[in-house]
């Protein structure tokens, strides 16, 4: 009897000790596991970020000394200075390229969903450009587009006269298209692999059943493939907008931003590291970041209100959508109006 009563507080105590130890351990784990990444995050992301905001209001150079306060003049200059503003327009070419690239990726991914002999080889061939470093891509296409070299020789082989072939990199009406095409070449395969991954997660029985029901390829694409990948397509579309603004290496190597091909980063790099206009470069970075934040917010809103894949729990939006759908169904009497 006495043994038991003596044992009880003892076990209780060790339980408490245990809890205490757990608590201490918990704090230790949290601190130890987070200290390195948090320090790095602070030093290489947030301190530079706030410094960037501060510098964007100054006219300053590298190397310690404080610059002069110029208020929002740098921001005004981003939009007034022709090279900066023009570089935003140059990005439009890359955005156009991104749309073409997504469409091509979607198309080829669809082709690969159906039985293809030698799929591994073809898929690998299309994907491989993504793995090549940007500088190498730059050289490959500098060579490709150079007057009288690869592309020109090819066109001549097909019977074109050299006089009729434009200067791919010098002609200002097309050189940005040539450069944006290198991005399409580089990223189409990667996008395709992403889409294919999402498409293959669809139960293959569905395709069988659909084709037995007499659905043609187009219908299969429209009703089976597309719904399964719409969110990843939209995600990539929005990512490609920030990607278009961030295009750097190919124009940097191929034309170094001359002849009207300076993308935003090429110009920013030149202003910061060659012209030492640190304040202006910081203002450019902030403007870029603002654009990217707006795109991301738009993306999140889009996912929240347009797609409710039913994968999430009943979010407010989903509930609202359902109510709306029910209302619509009640009014028109049609069953359509639910959100897939």
């Amino acid at each position: 009897m006495s043994n038991i009563t003596a044992a009880a507080p003892k076990s209780q105590k060790s339980f408490w000790e245990n809890m205490k130890a757990r608590k201490g351990q918990r704090i230790l784990v949290i601190v130890l596991f987070m200290i390195v990444p948090l320090t790095l995050l602070a030093v290489f992301t947030y301190i530079p970020f706030f410094e960037m905001i501060r510098f964007s209001f100054y006219n300053m150079k590298y190397g310690g000394q404080e610059g002069t306060w110029v208020g929002i003049n740098n921001y005004i200059e981003v939009f007034k200075r022709s090279e900066c503003f023009k570089s935003l327009l140059v990005s439009v070419y890359y955005m156009g390229g991104a749309v073409i690239q997504l469409a091509l990726a979607l198309f080829f991914a669809t082709m690969f969903v159906f039985h293809v002999k030698g799929r591994g080889f073809f898929k690998g061939a299309m994907f491989f450009p993504y793995l090549i470093c940007g500088i190498a891509v730059g050289f490959i296409f500098k060579f490709f587009y150079a007057r009288g070299f690869v592309l020109d020789s090819l066109l001549q082989m097909f019977g074109m006269n050299i006089e009729d072939i434009p200067y791919w990199l010098q002609d200002q009406s097309i050189n940005n298209i040539s450069l944006a095409a290198t991005s399409v070449w580089r990223y189409t395969g990667q996008n395709m692999v992403l889409f294919l991954g999402a498409m293959m997660s669809v139960d293959t029985d569905l395709y069988e059943a659909a084709s037995l029901d007499g659905a043609n390829k187009w219908h299969q694409f429209l009703y089976i493939i597309l719904p399964s990948i719409k969110s990843i397509v939209v995600l990539n579309l929005i990512l490609s907008i920030s990607g278009s603004l961030s295009a750097f290496e190919p124009p940097y190597v191929i034309t170094n931003g001359t002849m009207g091909t300076g993308t935003y980063f090429v110009i920013m790099n030149r202003l910061a590291h060659e012209n030492q206009k640190v304040g202006l470069a910081c203002a450019m970075a902030i403007v870029l970041l603002a654009i990217i934040v707006i795109c991301t917010v738009a993306q999140n809103l889009f996912f929240k209100y347009v797609f409710n894949d039913g994968t999430e729990d009943e979010s407010k939006a989903a509930v609202r959508a359902k109510k709306r759908a029910a209302k619509a169904a009640g009014k028109t009497g049609s069953g359509k109006g639910g959100i897939s």
Binding site: I47, P48, F49, N269, L288
Partner: peptide, 23 residues
């Protein structure tokens, strides 16, 4: 902290290098 990391993912690497260089 979670959100700080997520927001950091939005900042394009090249953009901040102007000030990272000074650090």
């Amino acid at each position: 902290i979670h959100n700080l990391f997520m927001f950091a993912a939005l900042i394009p690497g090249i953009a901040t290098q102007v000030t990272v260089y000074q650090i």
